[in-house]
């Protein structure tokens, strides 16, 4: 395949991954990796390197729009980022001593089950409860734009959310997978945030989380300039489109898209588990 044709195909995949990544707050890696590996026959190492940069791009480009629209909750983002990034570092250090393949299956099943719960959640049918006192003390309560104007929301169970994020961070560091899905699930299921606040706040976080692992990929020579360029250009365009779409898409549809992506992710994990694609692995 000539470089030009390859560029066009990767960029097209990037556009799709960028749209879905920005919409679901996952970053786009879940979709980009199988497109590169299964359709374009890129090896897993280079695909992972391109994907980690692509997620950084989705997060940055979409955050510009989400901050302006007023969805992102920066306080929740930073609070969860703390345990998530710390867990990620611990997980990466543990990876050499732990049976990673078995854990992939455990984590995959946990993800699938929580994605199912997330798909079923009906926010509008829930009774309004006051926020966790800690959330009030940390100034996490906020409002977000809806079709009926700005709507206040409460924040539940801050410490359980933070701890769970740490566990998810350890798993993502161990298994070399993105933390976006776990971000959304913790905010949606534990902290009971509105769905669009969860996805956009996750979107803010994934760029920082992904950037933390770029160093190791870069030093191990996983980041191929040409391949990553093609993915990043596509993702950039896709993320801009996705960020604009978020305002008009219904939360129910977002839940469906997100759950479908998590399903793909579980399958990816089994595939990766069989081939062991982590740096140094």
């Amino acid at each position: 395949m000539s470089a030009l044709l390859f560029l066009a195909l990767v960029a097209a995949g990037g556009i799709g991954a960028g749209i879905l990544g920005a919409l679901t707050g996952e970053g786009g890696g879940i979709l980009l990796v199988p497109v590169l590996v299964l359709l374009l026959h890129v090896n897993l190492h280079n695909a992972a390197g391109a994907s980690i940069i692509a997620v950084t791009m989705t997060s940055t480009a979409a955050t510009v729009a989400f901050l302006r629209q007023g969805y992102t909750n920066i306080r929740v983002a930073m609070f969860l980022q703390l345990t998530s990034i710390a867990g990620g570092i611990v997980g990466a250090l543990l990876a050499a001593f732990v049976p990673v393949q078995a854990l992939m299956i455990v984590f995959g099943v946990a993800l699938l089950y929580s994605a199912y719960l997330s798909f079923r959640r009906k926010e509008e049918a829930e009774v309004d409860r006051p926020s966790d006192p800690l959330a009030i003390r940390l100034g996490m309560e906020s409002s977000y734009p809806t079709v009926d104007g700005w709507k206040l929301y409460t924040v539940q169970r801050v410490m359980p959310g933070s701890l769970l994020m740490g566990v998810a961070g350890i798993f993502s560091g161990l298994l070399g997978i993105g933390a976006g899905a776990a971000n959304v699930l913790v905010m949606d299921q534990v902290m009971k945030l509105p769905y669009k606040v969860s996805t956009t706040t996750s979107n803010f976080m994934v760029g920082i989380t992904a950037a933390a692992s770029v160093g190791i990929y870069f030093r191990h020579g996983y980041i191929d300039p040409f391949l990553t360029m093609a993915a990043v250009i596509g993702i950039f365009a896709g993320a801009l489109v996705g960020a604009r779409l978020l305002m008009i898409v219904r939360a129910k549809l977002l839940r469906l898209l997100f759950s479908s992506l998590v399903l793909i992710m579980a399958l990816e994990m089994i595939y990766k588990g069989a081939l062991s694609a982590q740096p140094g692995g």
């Binding site: 570092i89 990466a92 920082i208 140094g280």
Partner: peptide
């Protein structure tokens, strides 16, 4: 983040 970026691995 700085630690992970520059020293991890």
């Amino acid at each position: 983040l700085t630690y992970a970026l520059f020293y991890a691995g």
